[in-house]
Design a protein around this nucleic acid. Sequence first.
DNA 1: GTCGGTGCAAATGCTTTGCATTGAT
DNA 2: ATCAATGCAAAGCATTTGCACCGAC
Lengths: 166, 166
Amino acid sequence: MTEGRADSAETPRLFPEPTETTQLQAFAPLCSVFRRFLKSRDLKYTQERADVLDAIIARDGAFEAEELLLDLRARGHDVSKATVYRTIRLLLDAGIITQSLFDAKQSHYELLYGREPRDCMVCMKTGRRIEFSSKELTALRDRICRELGWQPVGHRFQIFAVSPRE
Amino acid sequence: MTEGRADSAETPRLFPEPTETTQLQAFAPLCSVFRRFLKSRDLKYTQERADVLDAIIARDGAFEAEELLLDLRARGHDVSKATVYRTIRLLLDAGIITQSLFDAKQSHYELLYGREPRDCMVCMKTGRRIEFSSKELTALRDRICRELGWQPVGHRFQIFAVSPRE
DNA sequence: GTCGGTGCAAATGCTTTGCATTGAT
DNA sequence: ATCAATGCAAAGCATTTGCACCGAC
């Protein structure tokens, strides 16, 4: 069981640099990455798992399990809640998505593969949220990792602030 | 109800810069900050609320509600689980503690007042975690906020990386 | 004396799991 | 054919809430 984890160390977790392609092209290899990951664990690539990954790719940005479920239903792909959660787990293990929590209630996830991490700023008064991406931050992250001898994979940055009165 | 939030805007959420004092001295004013906050909302400063805040100060670093409960019990301060959760809410609203989530299961909190935020790096293979604090990051945060016209309160930064093989 | 606070136990709501059935290889 | 995956409903678990009693102001 825990061996599965060690195994996934062999499976590349550190994905190739995002190439200068369109969003869609960048996501094209995702399906095969997932397939490879499943094969490495002797798991099966099923219709349901493909559907879930598709729905995630179709979404731009963070999502919750429930949203995914609704999306799938809207497309006529009926996948059970249990399977959605189970697939999310696998995608996390594969390093294809990451958990990005904004509040404690629910888990939020987002695509990791081939993307700049999205940083965000939340207003502590209104709850308003804006997303951004800072190259400087990524550079800082890489520098910190280099100094400590770690290999960067991703990051999560959230700023708590008060938005200007409109 | 929602007025309470607006009200808390008057109560300082943006705490004074950490002064060059010992930990303990830095925490000394916390109790009165909490008191002032409660008064501003016509709430009472009770023994239980004081006990919870004490337990939080006694702990160094992040904590969970359950841990707090055990600490309190160990000191002979019997506070119910419900009250612990209710007090945590208040302290969050007061801006005295902040939520710092490392996993999705449980909420983690930590003292915010008079402290540098703690950034952390997690190993995606071993789960090993180290904490650090980067002035540069805080400066970057402040710069981003200034550019957008927001007022910084705090932040959370987590790096996902792979630790060097020992 | 008045409200708000507390403790208890029950309720919530997201997520996980057991089990019988279905399906990919 | 075999072994894992799915769906359903039930279980888990951290957190919240309703309510009767208690206590700070």
